[in-house]
Nucleic acid binder design. Structure first.
Lengths: 196, 196
DNA sequence: GCGCTTTTCTAAATATCATTAGGATATGGC
DNA sequence: GCCATATCCTAATGATATTTAGAAAAGCGC
C-alpha cells in the first residue's frame, strides 16, 4: 500500500501496531505505551493521530468494514439466483475473515463490548453489510426460488447467526483449522430450510 | 433467597451491585468504588470477598450458568422425541434469558472479550450446556426423526448460532421487545432443515 | 462482663495507565 | 539563513485498581 503523506504512513503504523496488540492481549491489557512503542513513537505523539484509545480501537473495524462494503457489490455482480448469491456471500466473507483475522477478532470479540457500539459509524456499516442479505432473501422469495412463506428477516437471522457463531468459535480456538471445513455441508443444510 | 452467614449475604450484595453496574455501564466504566458504594461498603472490603475486579466479573456468569445447568436436566425430563426436546430447550433458555437479562448481558456482551475466557470455569459450564444439544441431535438422527445424513455438530452450530444472534440483538436493542416474537416461525424453519 | 480470636471494615498509600501540557526538533517554502 | 508548520518527545496530571496497616465489631469460652 502507498501513502501520500508521511502522516498517513505513521497513522497506518499505529493502526497496525494496535491491531496486533489488541487482538493478542485484548483491549484492556494492551496499553497505549505498548502500542506507541510498537509503532515507533512516544505515547503523546499517538494522540496527534487519534483522540484516544477507544477512538483507536473503533478505527480498526471502521476501516475493515468500509473496505468490505466497497468490495461486496463487485463480488455479487453478475451472479444469478438468490441461492448462488448467498453462497458467494458466504464464501467471500469467510475468505476475507481468514485473510484478516486480526480485524475479525477485534470486530467479533471486542466491539460489542463497547457500551455505545450501536451509535458508532461501524455499526451502520455492519447494518449495510447485512442488509444486502435481506435483499437476497427477498429476491429469493419473490422469484419463487425460496418458499413463498419464508420470512426474509428470520432467514437472515439464521444465516448471520450461523456465520457469526462459526467465526467466533474459530477465533476463540486460535484459528487452528480452516473456516471452510464442513462449509459445504453447513450451507446445504441451511439452504434446505429456505428453498421449497 | 436465604443466606447462612452474613458473609454470604454481603457477597451477594456485592454481586447484585456489580451485575447492575456492569450491565448498565460496561466493565470498564463501572469502577470498583461505585460497586462498593452501591453495595454499602468500602473498596478495600470488597477485596475480602473477591480477588479483584475481573474475578468479580467472572463470578456473575459462573453462578448464572451453574444455575442453568442444574435446571436443564429437570426441564427436559420426560420429554419424548428430539424435536420436542429441542423446542423445550429453546423456550426454556429464552425464558431464563428474559428473566435475568442482566446476567445474560454480561455473558453475551462482556465475557468473550475476556482474553482467557476459554480457560475459565464458566466456559466449561457453557460447553456442558451446549453438549446437551449435541446429544439431542444425535438422538434425532439415530431414532430416524431427523435426516440420517445430518451432521449433529453442524446442526448444533446452526441452532446455537441462531439462538445467540437473536439474544445478542435483543440485548443490544435494550430488550425493547419480546424474545418470543417470531420464535415459532424461526423454530419451524430450523426444524425443516433438520428433519426429513 | 471480660479477655481473646476472627471477621469485617476503613483510611491512606501505592501502582498502573490514559491523557495533557509545554516545549523541542525536523521539514519545506522563501 | 529564517520563518511557519508539522511532527515528535519528556515530564506532569489524574483516574482508578489494588495493597497495607490496622481499627472496629462480632462471636465465644469463661
Amino acid at each position: 500500500m502507498m501513502f501520500k503523506t508521511p502522516k498517513e504512513s505513521t497513522k497506518n503504523r499505529i493502526i497496525e501496531a494496535a491491531k496486533k496488540l489488541f487482538a493478542d492481549q485484548g483491549y484492556q491489557k494492551a496499553t497505549v505505551v505498548d502500542i506507541s512503542k510498537q509503532a515507533g513513537l512516544s505515547e503523546a505523539a499517538l494522540y496527534e493521530y487519534f483522540q484516544g484509545k477507544e477512538d483507536l480501537l473503533l478505527t480498526i473495524p471502521d476501516l475493515w468494514v468500509s473496505d468490505l462494503i466497497s468490495d461486496l457489490e463487485r463480488q455479487l455482480f453478475g451472479i444469478k439466483g438468490a441461492v448462488n448469491k448467498l453462497r458467494k456471500y458466504l464464501w467471500w466473507y469467510f475468505r476475507r475473515v481468514e485473510e484478516t483475522p486480526l480485524d475479525a477478532k477485534i470486530v467479533y470479540l471486542f466491539l460489542k463490548t463497547n457500551a455505545n457500539f450501536m451509535a458508532t459509524d461501524v455499526y451502520s456499516n455492519v447494518k449495510l453489510l447485512y442488509s444486502c442479505l435481506l435483499d437476497i432473501f427477498e429476491e429469493g422469495v419473490k422469484s419463487g426460488e425460496m418458499r413463498p412463506d419464508l420470512n426474509p428477516r428470520i432467514a437472515r437471522n439464521i444465516f448471520i447467526g450461523t456465520m457469526e457463531h462459526i467465526i467466533t468459535l474459530w477465533l476463540l480456538r486460535d484459528q487452528a483449522y480452516s473456516l471452510f471445513d464442513n462449509l459445504d455441508e453447513t450451507f446445504d443444510i441451511l439452504v434446505r430450510a429456505f428453498v421449497k
